[in-house]
């Protein structure tokens, strides 16, 4: 077992445990942990099962099998980032709706007679 695979096993194993611990402590929502978990499991499995790694790497034309691990890692990072962009867009939409609702409720509550004195210069 060469050093890069050993490092890869340790790193992906640690990542897996860390993500699980964060979910357990409710610091990370399950929906956002799925891609992280899947990514670390795939890398861990490929690191342990050298034969699979070598087989797949050669099948897609990669001469140095550990490079395939990097590729898988990068692809998962890309997926996770896209997932974040989608999540941010969703939050943006919810935030806008809430701001609009608040503005309308405030107007209803005060009957439009006064502004909020705490806002302003």
């Amino acid at each position: 077992m060469n050093r890069v695979t050993l490092f890869s096993i340790c790193a992906s194993g640690a990542l897996l445990l860390y993500i699980l611990e964060m979910v357990r402590r409710r610091k990370l929502r399950e929906e956002y942990s799925i891609l992280w978990l899947a990514g670390s499991v795939v890398i861990l499995v490929l690191s342990i099962n050298q034969d699979w790694l070598v087989g797949i790497a050669h099948a897609v034309g990669i001469a140095y099998p550990p490079s395939f691990l990097f590729l898988v890692g990068i692809l998962f990072i890309l997926l996770i980032l896209i997932h974040f962009s989608i999540a941010i867009s969703k939050l943006h939409q919810m935030n806008k709706k809430m701001a609009q609702e608040i503005a309308m409720m405030k107007e209803k509550a005060t009957g439009g007679t006064s502004g909020d004195p705490s806002i302003g210069p």
């Binding site: 609009q100 503005a103 107007e107 502004g115 806002i119």
Partner: peptide
């Protein structure tokens, strides 16, 4: 917001810039 209200408009104050 105050100026518009004083001029006779109904005013909706958004809590942040949308």
């Amino acid at each position: 917001s105050d100026v518009a209200r004083e001029a006779g408009a109904t005013v909706l104050d958004l809590p942040c810039n949308l």
